[in-house]
Every structure is written in C-alpha cells, then in structure tokens.
Design a protein around this nucleic acid. Structure first.
Lengths: 341, 341
DNA sequence: CAAACGACCTGTATCGTTACAGTTTTAAGG
DNA sequence: CCTTAAAACTGTAACGATACAGGTCGTTTG
C-alpha cells in the first residue's frame, strides 16, 4: 500500500477532515473528495469504503473550506423588513423556511433592514460579498429595484409577492385579489352595500391586487366603494383606529369593512365599538388573518386565513430549485385564502 | 519601490482582497493584513495609507478566508423551539438580536428544532462543526443539559431564562416571580380570593419562578390558590379552553386567573365567556403579554408587558461580551414586567 | 568600528476543499 | 511485442487570510 497525500497523521481528537479519511483508507485526499462526490472515475468499491469510513467517524465537510474554494456558501439569506415584524408575519415564515432547509445543507441567515428606503442595502451586501447562494425578499413593489438588480446579476432569489416588470422570476404570493373579491361577496351576502377597504400601502404590488379584487367585487355584487385612504396597513394601530373613528362618524360611514390584515382589523374593531356600533349587527368586518387571534376573541369578524408558514416552505423550495438551475417561470406559485369554517 | 508578495495583477472587476490593496499600495499582503488590524509593528503612515485605499475600494474581508484560517465564524446561532414560535415570541426576539448584530460583523443564523427531546441536537451540531462563535438558547430547564455541555466545552452562549445548576453562565430573564406576585396583588385588590395560575410546563425553570411568585402573593395578600394543572402554556388553545371550561363549571371554580402568556389568556377569555361570566364583573384575569392584542380587544384583561425585543438586544449583547471574554457572572440581567395603566 | 537593537516590512506555510493535469496499471488492438 | 486506451487513482496549486519566523536598514552602544 503506497502512502497517499495524507503524509502527516491527523490529530486524534480533532474534527475529521478529508485528510483523516485519506489516512484511514490509505487513499489520497483527492480520491476521497471525489469518492464522496460520487465521481465517475472512482471505483464502486472504493466509494463504498470511503462512504463507510466517513459515516463511521461522522465526517462533515468544512463549510469554510468549501466556501473558499468553490464560492458556494450553503446559505440562504432572508431579508426582512421591520414592518413585517410588526405585523407578526416573519415568525411563522422563518419556521416554514427552516422546515425545508433542515432537510438540506443550507443554513438560514436573517437580515432585517430598517426603513423602506434601505431595502436595497442588504441585497447589495449579499451580491457584493457573496454572503449567500440565494435570497428571499418580500414586500415587493411593481417595479422593484431589488428584483431588477438580482435579475441583472443572474443571482438566485425568490420574492414573497409579485412584480410587474415583465420579467419572469420565482415568487410565491397570496392571492390578495381573490381575498378581497370574496370578502366583498361575504359582505354583500350579509346585506352590506357601503364598503371600505383597509388597504396595503400603495407602492406595494399587493395593493394593486387587493384593490382590483375589491373593485371587481363591488361591480359584480353591486355595492358601493367608499374612500378610506387616510391610513393603510403599515400605519400604527392607534392611527388606524383614529382614522376609522373619524370615518365612522362622518357622512361617508360604511356598513362593511374589508381589512387586509388581522392587526388592522383589531384597530378597526376598537374604532367601530367606540362608535357604538355592534359587529355583525350594525356593521360587518371581513379580515385576512395569519395568527388565529381574531377568531378567538372576535368570532363576529369574518376571517380568511393566510398560511404564512406554508409561504415560508414554498419560498425555500423555490430558491433552492432556482439555485439548482430550474427555470424561473416554473417557480411561481400562488396560495389561496382559506375560509374559516 | 520593491515588488511585494502581490506578484500577479489582481483581476479588475473582482471583489477586492488583501492582494488588491497590496498591489495598489506596493506593500506586502502581510503588511496590509497587519495594518488593517492596527498591529504595533506597522508605521502610522502606512496604516493610514492602507486604510484609505481599503475604504476607497470598499474592501471587506472574505469571511471564508478568515474562518478557515482562524476558526472565527462571525456567526451567532439562535436556537429556537417551535413551541416558542407558536407563542409568537421569536419574531420580536430576532429583531432585537439583529438590531445589535447590525452594528457588528456578526451574522445571525436561525436554527429551530422540533420537539423538546431534540433540544440538544442543534447545540451539539454547533459544537461539533464550529458553526458559530456563540449560541443563544431559550426555554431553559433547572438542570439544563445544553448548558452543562456548553459550559464543559467552555463555549460562549447565553440563555433566555435561568438555570439552577450552581454554574454561573450569562443569561437574560424576565422576572416571572415578580410578574405572578404582582398579578396576585392586582387580583386581590379587585376583591378576588380564589385564584388559579395558568402556568408554564413544569420542567422549565420559569415554572418555578412563576409558581413561587404566585404562592408568595397568595400568602402575602391572603388569597386561596386553587389547582389548575390539567393544562399548561404549551397546550393548544383548544385544550386550554376546554380545561378552563371544566374548571369553571366545577366546585373549585376560581374568581381570579393569572395567565403566564397572552395567547393562553385568549383561550381563557373564550372559556370564561362561554361559562356566562363577564370579565371584570364576575371574574378577573391578569395576563402577561408581549404582543399588544389583548389590550386592544379585551381591555378588561389586566396585562403586564414582557418586552421580547429588549430581551433579544440583551441576549445579543451578552453573547458578544462573552465571546470577547467578559466573565459570565457579569452578564446576567433581568427585566421586569411593565404594567399597562 | 563591530555588535546589538529597534522599527518596519515581508515570504512561507497553513487552514480544508476542489479543479486540473497528470501517473500508474492493466487490457485491448494491430 | 509495441502502441493505445481506459480505468483508477494522485500531486499540485489555488481560494483569502493570518501566524510565525525571518529580513533590511538605520541608529545606538561599548
């Protein structure tokens, strides 16, 4: 048996490396590396032997070594906005992503950014430093500079939310158009005709979807849309409540409200109760929600669930598929509102 | 000017490395490295020059290079339990941690684990693969094997929650004893005397604290503690509601309840309203809460806030200080319940 | 004036992995 | 019997950074 490359005896108690396996099998380091990669120029018997030893001693490739040599980081970067945080969306999302990544070699790095204006910074950081193999972003805009940048650099990513740039990129989105449309249907079914929508901030893509669904519902089901754009879903609960109170005491008071988020609905409930109205009697409220608190504390609110954890899983699967070269157009999925009971 | 080590011309459009700076300044790679580290054997003028060039071209050290050579990962690993997830605690916690890490070179890697029984796995993974420089864990037990393991290996970590092992380790904790004590006080002030506690699972350390505070309050303020241990805070909302309904319709029905979490309180509210009781009239409920939803939807519930985002900040500061060698005993902090008017 | 010193700078080896360009061995082809 | 090829394996260099052990060159010291 000829001595391989592994000339020095590996330290006994250290973490095993390719060198350790090379020493134990009497093979060269290169051979071991290629055997573990199932390369075609290694005999089946050798591969088997190497795999056996590797498993026995619990070999795990050194991430820094791989990363330095190949540039592959085995990292997915989740770029979060603090606004999402406040809406409580990120938590189940992180779980969903982790559920998928746990079955792979990927680690999840979470990078939040402060204001909407800085959304591009963390993306640039990843691109410039090669900090990750793929990126997950959310709160997409119709013309999203982050998407433009990553497309241009051909960098794998997936968005939570769609864009309108005529570019095919991976996304997962909730069908907010359907949600708003069904919400109007439910309100009209309850006899409501003068409706308002507590909507997303206008620069986000899903504003357009939700708005479109709302207006289509208004037309199809024969109701009236009243204006309510002093506040949006990004406003604080206090601001939403105040704006809603003003609305409810004015001449254009609605008898039905659609809320684009559960926390928005909380503020609306406070406002309409303060105005002396009773939910389900004088007025109805349909809300999207991802946690399940409204259902428990105000079952009179009609809710439709958005499964954020599922979204996390879909997003993770999509980035990974993209990294592995699957065409973007095949990585676009929608999920639909889940009616409660 | 003599040629340094940087013999080959660095590629033009690539990410700058030490070699790039070495080439531009005419210095050796080693000198550049040491200059950026502010080593004592480099002249002030050279350091200045190197720093200037580095800043100009936007040099950022390659993490894989550093990690491979030095073992330093510049990663903090947050190890989460899915139970926390469900309680919605992890989201603001991630933000708090990130707020601190954003000012440093550290990245945050999030690793959840499934069941309580697997809590040790992710810790072992980090220790064995050197995946991080420091670890943050939560849901501590009085004798916590994760703490024992990391102490034994002298690995930097901080816990969210205390232990009772006679070992000084960094922690941040919420004063659950104080919370429960004050909760009992508030109930007695409202004339309630027959009290129950919706408590944490008994194997977690904060069970002991909350229990102790509750019982001390019972003694000090002269009330009666009734048993309620069919369910705990880890139970599903449905199970909590069912158990509470049974309790309320039995002979040992309480007139005051302390809930160790906001989501637990949601289930309790449902139960007591189903039993025909009115909050604030027939019965009172004091709850800890970290989101602010109870305050909005059931202001009759007396709440005391736990600031999870603050906890995240404290935890991040503590691990980093520990990594930098600060003694564990100096890295132990408590936060206190914040009364909501 | 030689030796010793201090201030500054630099080459080499190394961390673990993989791309690439061989080398060895055996068998087939002419 | 020599050439060629295929199969199986291996050494070297390199990714970027740093520890370490020198270098060089004035200046001080005996």
């Amino acid at each position: 048996m000829s001595e391989g490359q592994a000339t020095a005896l590996p330290a006994p108690n250290e973490r095993p490396t390719l060198k350790t396996i090379a020493f134990m099998t009497g093979l060269g380091i290169t051979t071991v590396s290629r055997a573990l990669k199932d390369a075609s120029d290694i005999s089946a018997e050798t591969k088997e032997r190497v795999r056996l030893v590797a498993r026995q001693i619990g070999y795990q490739p050194n991430r820094a070594g791989v990363r330095l040599r190949t540039g592959k980081t085995n990292v997915i970067s989740l770029i979060l906005s603090l606004e999402e945080e406040i809406m409580g969306l990120s938590s189940p999302m992180v779980i969903g992503i982790s559920e998928i990544l746990a079955t792979t070699q990927y680690h999840l790095v979470v990078t939040p950014y402060r204001a909407q204006g800085n959304a591009l910074d963390p993306v640039r950081y990843v691109l410039e430093t090669g900090a990750a193999d793929g990126v997950i972003i959310s709160r997409t805009e119709p013309k999203d500079p982050r998407v433009a940048l990553m497309m241009e650099r051909n960098f794998p990513f997936v968005t939570h939310g769609r864009t309108e740039m005529g570019l095919a990129h991976p996304y997962h989105d909730f069908d907010n158009e359907r949600f708003a449309y069904e919400a109007v249907r439910k309100l009209v079914e309850r006899g409501r005709t003068r409706l308002v929508l507590l909507q997303p901030p206008p620069y986000l893509t899903f504003y357009l979807h939700m708005r479109a669904g709302f207006e289509k519902g208004i037309r199809d089901f024969g109701a009236t849309a009243l204006p309510f754009s002093q506040v949006n879903l990004d406003a604080s609960l206090v601001d939403i409540r105040n704006a809603a109170e003003a609305l409810l005491s004015g001449p254009d008071a609605p008898d039905g409200i659609v809320s684009g988020s559960g926390s928005g609905a909380v503020a609306l409930v406070a406002a309409l109760e303060a105005s002396g109205r009773r939910l389900g009697h004088d007025i109805d409220l349909v809300s999207k929600e991802s946690q399940m608190l409204l259902q428990w504390l105000r079952p009179e609110v009609v809710t439709m669930r958005e499964d954020i954890r599922l979204a996390g899983r879909e997003l993770a699967k999509a980035v990974i598929a993209r990294i592995e070269g699957k065409p973007p157009a095949e990585l676009q999925t929608l999920s639909y509102p889940i009616p409660i009971e």
